[in-house]
C-alpha cells in the first residue's frame, strides 16, 4: 500500500516537473525571440541596413509569392461569390448582398488571413530552413568571426521585406479576390459589374481597409520573428533543420489564427472596422 502511495507521489512530482520544464522552455523561447526582435529593431534604428540584401528579400517574398497569393485569393473570391449568390438566390430569388459580403469577408478577414497562411508556408518555411542550415553548418559562426552580426545580416533584411511585402500582398489579394467574385457574379446572374462594385464599396470605409491592413502588419511580424528565431535556434543537422522548419510553420499558423480573434476584437473596440 505504502509502495503504491510513494509511486503515485513520485508520478505526480514527475508530471509537475515535466510541466515546469515545458513552461520553462516556452518562456525561454519567448525570451530569446524577444531579444532577437529587440536586436533587430536596434540595427534598423541605427540605420545598419543592407539595401541590396533587403531588396533581394523583397523580390523573393513579394514578387515570387504573388502568383500563389493571387491564385488563392482569386479562387476564394470566386467560391464566396458562387456560394453567397446561390444562397441568396434560393432565399430571395435574386443574388443580393454578394458584393457587400465579399467585400467585408475579403478585406476584413480572408485577405489578410489567407495571404498570411500562404506566406507562412512559402516564405516562413524558407527563412527557417535557410537560417537553420546556416546554423548547423557553422555559417552563422563564420559570419560572427568575419565581423558581421548574424541578426544584422540575416534577420534585418528579412524583417523589413516581410513587414512591407505582406501588407502589399494583402492589398493585391483583396483586389484580385474581388475581381474573382465579380467575374462569377456577373457571368452567373443578371448583375452588372457596376452594381457589384457599388454593393461592395457603398458599405466599406477607409477604416474597413485599415482593419485588414493593420492585421496583416501584425501577421508579418509573427511570421518573420518566428521564422528567424526558429532558424537561429536550429540544432542537430538535417533532422534538426526539418524539425525547426515544421515547428516554425505550425507556430506561425497557430499564432496567426489565435491572434486574429484578439486583434479583430481590439480593432472593433477602437472602431477601426
Amino acid at each position: 500500500m505504502s509502495i503504491n502511495k510513494t509511486a503515485n507521489i513520485s508520478n505526480e512530482i514527475g508530471f509537475f516537473a515535466h510541466l515546469l520544464s515545458i513552461a520553462y522552455s516556452v518562456l525561454e523561447g519567448i525570451g530569446e525571440a524577444a531579444r532577437m526582435s529587440v536586436e533587430t529593431f536596434f540595427w534598423i534604428f541605427r540605420g545598419k541596413i543592407s539595401i541590396s540584401n533587403t531588396v533581394s528579400q523583397m523580390v523573393e517574398m513579394g514578387w515570387r509569392s504573388l502568383p500563389i497569393v493571387a491564385l488563392t485569393s482569386f479562387s476564394t473570391g470566386m467560391v464566396i461569390a458562387l456560394q453567397v449568390g446561390t444562397a441568396t438566390t434560393n432565399m430571395f430569388n435574386e443574388p443580393i448582398f454578394v458584393g457587400m459580403i465579399m467585400g467585408f469577408s475579403l478585406v476584413l478577414e480572408l485577405g489578410p488571413i489567407l495571404t498570411a497562411v500562404v506566406v507562412t508556408g512559402r516564405v516562413g518555411a524558407a527563412i527557417t530552413a535557410e537560417i537553420g542550415t546556416m546554423k548547423v553548418t557553422e555559417q552563422i559562426d563564420a559570419l560572427y568571426t568575419l565581423g558581421t552580426n548574424p541578426v544584422k545580416y540575416l534577420a534585418v533584411p528579412r524583417f523589413l521585406a516581410c513587414l512591407t511585402m505582406l501588407p502589399l500582398l494583402t492589398v493585391i489579394a483583396n483586389i484580385v479576390g474581388m475581381y474573382g467574385g465579380l467575374i462569377v457574379t456577373t457571368s452567373s446572374w443578371d448583375v452588372t459589374a457596376a452594381q457589384f462594385m457599388r454593393d461592395a464599396l457603398d458599405i466599406m470605409t477607409v477604416k474597413t481597409f485599415f482593419h485588414g491592413f493593420i492585421k496583416s502588419i501584425f501577421f508579418s511580424l509573427i511570421i518573420v520573428i518566428t521564422a528567424c528565431h526558429k532558424g537561429f535556434n536550429a540544432k542537430g543537422g538535417a533532422e534538426g533543420v526539418g524539425k525547426a522548419t515544421t515547428s516554425s510553420v505550425m507556430l506561425s499558423l497557430v499564432l496567426i489564427l489565435v491572434s486574429d480573434y484578439f486583434l479583430s476584437s481590439l480593432l472593433v473596440s477602437l472602431r477601426i472596422k
Binding site: M134, Q139, D141, A142, T145, G147
Partner: peptide
C-alpha cells in the same frame, strides 16, 4: 580584437 583573429572551420563553413 576579433578583427585580428581568423577562424578556419572544420567543414569550411563557406556561405552557400
Amino acid at each position: 580584437i576579433q578583427k585580428k583573429m581568423g577562424y578556419v572551420f572544420q567543414e569550411a563553413a563557406l556561405f552557400d
